[in-house]
């Protein structure tokens, strides 16, 4: 008899994999970006099934905006965003499929072969969602404070760097005239 937790984890896990595969199968870029979004949302739901409520909700929240922004860049930069022209946008197919399958099988084999230590078996052995949020807060402002600050500074640096790269270069001739 499988537990509800296993059932929901498997359900959302399979949903995440199916949507993840759909990203590279469909030829419409919008569908591709939103498939990635729903793959990530399914993962968030899987986190919820694994009782990591804060992380699950955070994943669901962040990915919605992130993947929608992905969608507009897809439409901007692809030659055939609607997927009506049946263009093939891939190369080195055989190598990629081999590498992908090898990576998946290799990770799965390690997952089976490894000697995992015994963890908690029942649902109640994990802290409640409220206690988790509290413990995460203590962790953030305690032992992991430096790491967290580094993450914040990294995002700031990335924002500035990305903006600096993306703004158009000054038009020399026009700048001369004015």
């Amino acid at each position: 008899m499988i537990s509800w937790q296993t059932f929901f984890m498997a359900f959302f896990g399979i949903a995440a994999i199916v949507f993840g595969a759909a990203v590279f199968v469909t030829s419409s870029m919008m569908r591709s970006a939103l498939a990635l979004l729903f793959s990530q949302t399914a993962l968030g739901a899987m986190f919820l099934a694994m009782q990591a409520e804060f992380l699950g909700v955070l994943q669901i929240m962040m990915m919605a905006t992130e993947m929608s922004i992905m969608a507009i860049f897809m439409v901007m930069f692809m030659m055939d965003p609607g997927g009506l022209g049946d263009m093939d946008m891939s190369h080195q197919k055989r190598l990629s499929i081999l590498a992908g399958v090898a990576a998946a099988v290799f990770s799965a084999v390690i997952a089976i072969a490894a000697h995992w230590p015994a963890g908690p078996e029942t649902l109640s052995e994990v802290a409640s969602a409220g206690a988790q949020v509290r413990a995460l807060g203590v962790e953030l402002l305690g032992r992991s404070m430096l790491i967290f600050e580094t993450a914040g500074v990294t995002i700031l640096t990335a924002m500035i760097a990305a903006t600096a790269v993306a703004i158009p270069p000054l038009q020399r001739s026009k700048a001369h005239e004015s």
Binding site: L37, F54, V57, L58, I60, A64, T65, S68, G130, Q132
Partner: peptide, 16 residues
């Protein structure tokens, strides 16, 4: 337990 965050998460799907 993450209600205030959940409101944000749900509203993000308005965009989608």
């Amino acid at each position: 337990a993450t209600g205030a965050l959940f409101v944000n998460a749900a509203l993000a799907y308005v965009l989608v």
